[in-house]
Write a protein that binds this DNA or RNA. Structure first.
Lengths: 197, 197, 197, 197
DNA sequence: CATGAATGAGGATTCATTCAT
DNA sequence: CATGAATGAATCCTCATTCAT
């Protein structure tokens, strides 16, 4: 087994365990067992428990960024791009609930643990939304009075809360398409530049 | 000092400490010190650490529900009501960042800790949004094809992500009014029933 | 309510609680509740938890001593006296299992807790047995080669183990009479001076 | 150092510490220090403090059973067997006062702590006495009217009380032989079948 | 005398991390 | 590189005892 293999297996195991138990309740030995390595082996690849959390988060978000960029590269319509982003994000969260949970935890906890930790990957991810909105504004299909920096948060927050509820509650019977549709119903008309349409 | 006093002081101290450190990193002795009581005194009012978390959450959300209900009782316009809800929520979170953080933590962690814990107070709170949307649909000022159950999540998620960012990042220089305005720009036109207007 | 009343009620409650839970598992608040007094009230009558234990023991053993002395005062036959002692002890233990347990615990624990604590009352109690044996030796009905100091322990130990088993196990279906009879079968012939009979 | 070694060292340390302080006053850190391991190491071998107590008891009683069985296997005379049992038991208790105390504590406390705990090893041990008595009855050297189940308790109780006194009091100057002799003086003539002798 | 809320010292247990093998 | 036994610091919670009322 190659080292890269073990690193990947630990990341994958940690994603699963963090998602299931939450970062603090998760034990290093849980991750080790899930990854089928010895407890000590984990410390050959990561400095400590927090380091695993950050690595998990950055790797997984990094993948999302790449996937989103690839999916969007041939698309020029801002409305369509927003739709693609939302659909892909929700589909990814529905498919990999572990990841959704890890994002939830990570986003709310890491800053308390590691002072001044900056989620570069995450910022890059939601900046995709800001960029779509800006391009829509340049094309005059989105209203000028929308602040893309705030709108990206509002948009991501909406998607994120939906993902959260999926993982715990009754409302989980909605399909990705239904939800994507609902989100877009609101946001596309909400963002639309009525002056020019 | 009356008992009610001490209970309230512990809740308040816990809100502060949980917000600053996060639930798991927070120590009972931190809360005791903040509340200026002995460690053991906390256990006269709460069963255990989780019980404090739940109590903090429910009490604080309960207050939000009451405030929101009161602020909305004389208002009949659904658009106006949504505006009031958003403005009040964001103002409360900006004012009491501790509370915003406790909501963040609670919503993402308690279900992992205490199986089947149901946030009645929280559901009541966001159902206010669903009810506003439904009344807007009855009045035909909001689109019929919006699902209020999903929309309440989308709306709350947007507000919540905004609140989260306030507590950690650079973007905290926006005012409550600016953000409320942005959220409403999107949502009010997003929800608007164009067929009748 | 008179003070003597409360003292007695605490002793009685403590006997019950110690017997049920054991000294260390018993809580002062358990005793207070059982005695229907406030926790703090107990400290008006006793110095500390150990003091309660010792008081319970000495009072209860004191009663046994008085009862035994009274029952034996008109009896002159050493065999008969031994029989009376055994029958009364077993009957008392069967009737008041709490007391039996308190004796068990006390005898094995107090010396560890309070260095050099001497059970005067207890020694007085088992010395009744030694004295019966000595009188039997003077009357030449008991063998001379028996050491009364050891025999009192052997005799009491036999009775005590029987009492212990009563409180926990299956063998509790024997009656006091059956057991008294068995004990005397062994001890009376065991102690008998065959040279003169 | 092998694992078996550490397990044995902890058992031995616990026996010593429990005997000296009693189960409840004994601290896990006392046992750890005595065994020269870290506190946490104890929990690699035992589930909790009670588990240590039970393990100590069962292991030590198990040894007594084996020793007794071995010492008795070539003996056929019931009187002689009773003598051997008593002599060995008293010698073991005199030699290992810690063990004597652990038996005392265990027998009186564990049932309160762990509901329905059954001392299989202990029952096996005292059943040796019952079996000796039964064989003596078959050989018609012991009286028929003795109930072996009660007699085993009476006999063990006598031995046990003697052991108890050894560990705390003045009477500890008697030798094993003296005491064995006294116990047998009483019990052998007490059990003897006079009809046939 | 009586109360019971408050105290805070103390201890069993957990678990991230290390390191000898 | 890999292991997992061992470590021991760290913390939640209990409960005997106090003392203001």
């Amino acid at each position: 087994m190659k080292a890269v293999d073990k690193h990947a297996r630990i990341i994958s195991a940690a994603t699963k365990v963090f998602a299931k138990k939450g970062f603090f309740v998760a034990r290093i030995s849980d991750i080790a067992k899930e990854a089928k390595v010895a407890d000590g082996t984990i410390y050959l690849y990561f400095n400590n428990k927090y380091d695993i959390l950050i690595s998990v988060f950055e790797e997984e978000i990094g993948k999302l960024v790449l996937q989103a960029q690839k999916a969007l590269e041939k698309e020029t319509s801002p409305q369509k791009m927003l739709e693609i982003f939302a659909a892909r994000h929700l589909a990814a969260m529905k498919k990999n609930k572990n990841l959704a949970e890890v994002i939830q935890i990570e986003l709310r906890q890491t800053n308390k643990i590691i002072k001044d930790y900056r989620n570069k990957a995450f910022l890059e991810y939601i900046d995709i939304v800001a960029e779509i909105i800006r391009s829509g504004q340049r094309d005059q299909v989105f209203r000028d009075d929308i602040n893309p920096e705030l709108a990206k948060r509002i948009f991501f927050g909406a998607l994120d809360e939906i993902s959260r509820v999926w993982n715990i509650s009754l409302e989980s019977h909605y399909t990705v398409d239904e939800i994507t549709n609902q989100v877009l119903l609101i946001f596309l008309s909400g963002l639309r530049n009525e002056a020019t349409q």
